[in-house]
Design a binder for these strands. Structure first.
Lengths: 133, 133
DNA sequence: CAGGATCCCGTTAGATACTG
DNA sequence: CAGTATCTAACGGGATCCTG
């Protein structure tokens, strides 16, 4: 793919093709799943180790029970976390990252670093721009 | 922040705090802006260099004029791209990444690599899971 | 405790038509 | 060429109430 591109340095070539791929469809399928409001936060929180539903609910301020449930179900379906139900009363359900889930931490971290580094500049640009109008 | 956490290895400590931060709010403000359907793709495409509106429209299959316009306006507002209008007939408008915009490529690339690497496994887990129901 | 079921609303984004 | 305007459907996500 991208073999007909010309006048690109090798590094640009690699960049462009890696992200754009088949028009970006394959990438977007995964990214749409990861980049919603809560997924990255849940994964990051589970980086601590095994946690129960209520633990997660307390450690992620602002999330509703509904969204926590949905997010956990999706992560389980995609094989990023495990869900273990203990046959007790009251019930106890524990969530933990799988190997795939853990492998998401470093890339997520690099994005987080970028966001935190550039947040002030972006906010400034945003305000300067809205001032003009 | 996170200074009261205990029994975390230094690396886990760093991971958790970087991403979770103030409950993830600062991170999400930026991420919400980056992780929509088209932004990353537009930035990646502009990594080639300066491009015109129509060039982008052709190189990003599936994007509508409307969404391309909106995405470009947001990127310009946040200082990630420049928009140069040439006073000609017919009009010519050129878009290019700023330094901030270029700095987004490496983190985006690391996420892209993760997505591409784990896409097969995720798809498989997803199908295996839906088979069960 | 760990959700499931509903209702409701704002935002996102696609389609289409029009313009300086 | 490079947009703008308008309408609409779809989806994400919050609030609330209920349950094994």
């Amino acid at each position: 793919m991208c073999l007909t591109d010309k006048e690109l340095s090798p590094v640009d070539y690699e960049h462009t093709c890696m992200i754009r791929g088949d028009g970006g469809r394959a990438l977007r399928r995964i990214l749409d799943q990861i980049c919603n409001k809560w997924t990255l936060l849940v994964v990051a929180t589970l980086d601590q180790g095994t946690l129960r539903f209520t633990d997660l609910h307390h450690q992620i301020p602002g999330i509703s029970q509904r969204m926590l449930t949905l997010t956990l179900r999706n992560l389980e379906r995609d094989g990023l976390i495990t869900r273990t139900v203990h046959a007790e009363v009251p019930p106890r359900v524990e969530y933990a990252l799988t190997a795939t889930g853990k492998s998401l931490i470093p890339p997520a971290l690099s994005l987080a670093k970028w966001a935190i580094t550039h947040a002030p500049g972006i906010e400034a640009a945003r305000e300067a721009h809205t001032q003009k109008n």
